[in-house]
Every structure is written in C-alpha cells, then in structure tokens.
Computed example of a mutant assay.
Amino acid sequence: MTYKKTEPFEGSAFPLRVTVQKRQGILVNPHWHEHLEVMQVLAGRVRVQVNGKRYEGQAGDIFFVNSNALHGVEALEAEAELLGVVWDIRLTDSFMEEVELQHLYHLLLRSEVDPVLARARQPEWEVCSGTLQELRREYEGGGLGYRTAIKSHVFRLIREQLRKLQSTAGLMKMTREYERLRPAIALIEQGYSGRLPLQEVAGTAGLSLFHFCRLFKRVMNRTVQQFVQEVRLREARRLLRDTDLPVAELSERVGYGNPNYFARVFREHTGTTPLRMRKQYQDMKAAGQHPHEPE
C-alpha cells in the first residue's frame, strides 16, 4: 500500500492549497508528499501523527509537517476542526535570495524537525496564528496581488520554523561546512556574468574539484552549475523589476550570450517569460505593492 498523495495543485502555476476539515474520526488519512504543510487546530482536540510519533493538539495549536514526512490527524472530539495549508517546496524560491537562508532552508528539508510549531498562547504563537489567518483571508478572497501576499505569509511561516531549526543539535557541523564554502559562493555571486572555471572556484575553498563539488552538493542540496544558474536568474528577475533594459542586453549581463536560450531557461524555471514577469512587476508597482520584498 502506498501513502504518497498527489495534490490537486501539482503542475499548476500557483502550487498551494488551503483546506478546512471538520468531521468525526479521521480528519486526515495517513499520507506523505514532497510538499510542506502547516496545520492549525481551529476547534476541539486532535491527535497528530508524524513519522510514527503522536502529538495531541487543542484549539490554537499549530503543527509543521516537513517534506516527505508520513502524517495523519485524528479528531478526539466531535467538534474538532482543522485548517491545513500545503504548498510546493519551491513556492517561495523568489523570497530565498540570501544564500545563508537558502542553506538553512535546504537543511530544513533534510532534517527531522519538531512538528509542534507553536502551542496556543506561547510567545511565537501570535505571529504564526496571525499569519495563518491572513493567508486564509487572501486565499479565500482573491483579488489583485493575492498570490504574492500569500507567498509572503508562507515565507513567514518558514522563517519561524527556520528559527527553531537554528537551535537544534547537528546544525553546527553543517554550518562549519557552509563557512568553508562561503568564499566560493561569494566568487560565484560576483562573477556570475562571465565564465567561471570550476577549478578556480574550488580553489577558493581549498579543495580539489572533486571534493568541492561533492561538499557543495551535500551542503547546498544542488550542484555548483545549478547554483550558478539560480544566481543568474535571480539577478535577471531583479533587473526585470528595477530596470527597463531590453531582454537581449539583460540576458548578456547575467551571463547568457544567447537571448533565446536565456528566455527558454527563464521560462523553465519561473513558468513565465521575461517580458510577462516585467509586466507583472509593473502592475504590482502601479497598485502600490512591492514585489518579492518580504520583511
């Protein structure tokens, strides 16, 4: 029997779903998926199971379910009600522009974290609960810019979980490895627009090319080439947002000599074309919004 669940949003441009479950017995059948999920008990009492461990929750309690974690929820009272928010792990990529943040995020996805994000009336509860309420209102109300607003709320929830992760055992080793890679990461971020010999990049970390590539993949959860591409596309999004440069000139500035190839790569990774993204930025600015600038 397989417990993997396919969410209805998979393959869509906005991979997120909000649900409210209210019934006796099983609220959420045991399953797993590659997405992230946050659940809040709206009423009554429930029992949450994550990777074989049980956690009881009451009205207000908030739980975080990591990628690939087997989980389910049982109602312990007839009036139990559960809010669920599930989203693809790449939904907030545009908010993860700081490399240190990306490192922690990918570490989070590979870690076994405490599923209890916030208990009712704990200090961090007010932030998490308020964020979930705002997210739900945006999701149900729609309107101009609602997707960007929802992404910012999801980012806040991830941020709260990352803060908890920073205090866990085992993080120090990963942080030391990241510090060793920092000079190479800085070189990539400074020289993304030109040719980057990998041997030179590896040398800044004092490693052979083989050991550097292996360490980079383990710590950053992607290859060096994938990271270079991410840096280039991140700068491309910034230039689309903040300048009026023609796409051909923009693509050359970020290291793509062929504008057609740049447009194809950009669409594969963002789901839209450079010109359409620029138009989205312009529309949001005209509405008084600030695209991709989380607090």
Rank of each mutant, 00 (worst) to 15 (best):
G11C: 08
F14I: 00
P15F: 01
P15Q: 08
R17C: 03
R17F: 00
V20R: 12
R23P: 03
G25L: 10
E34D: 13
E34R: 15
H35Q: 08
V38M: 08
M39N: 10
L42V: 11
L42D: 02
A43C: 04
V46R: 00
R47F: 02
V50N: 02
R54G: 04
G57Y: 02
Q58K: 12
A59C: 06
G60P: 00
S67D: 03
E79G: 06
A80R: 03
L83W: 02
G84L: 06
V85Q: 06
I89R: 15
D93Y: 10
V99M: 07
E100S: 12
L101R: 12
L104E: 04
H106Q: 13
L107M: 10
L107P: 01
R110N: 11
E112S: 09
A118Y: 09
E124A: 13
W125Y: 06
E126F: 14
C128Q: 05
S129E: 08
L135Y: 01
L135C: 02
R136F: 06
E138Y: 00
Y139S: 06
G141L: 05
G141N: 12
G143Y: 03
Y146M: 00
S152I: 01
S152F: 02
H153Y: 09
F155G: 10
I158K: 03
R159C: 06
Q161P: 00
L162S: 07
L162N: 06
K164S: 08
S167N: 09
T168D: 05
T168N: 02
M174K: 11
M174H: 14
T175S: 12
R180I: 13
A184C: 07
A186L: 15
L187H: 12
I188L: 15
Q190R: 15
P197K: 12
E200I: 11
E200Q: 14
V201R: 07
L207K: 03
S208R: 10
F212E: 00
R214K: 15
K217T: 11
M220R: 09
Q225V: 13
R232C: 02
L233K: 04
E235M: 15
A236F: 01
L239Q: 12
V247G: 04
L250P: 00
S251W: 08
G255K: 05
G257L: 14
A263L: 04
F266T: 07
T272Y: 02
T273H: 00
P274I: 05
P274N: 06
L275A: 12
R278V: 08
Y281T: 06
Q282V: 05
D283E: 15
K285T: 03
A287V: 00
H290V: 14
P294S: 13
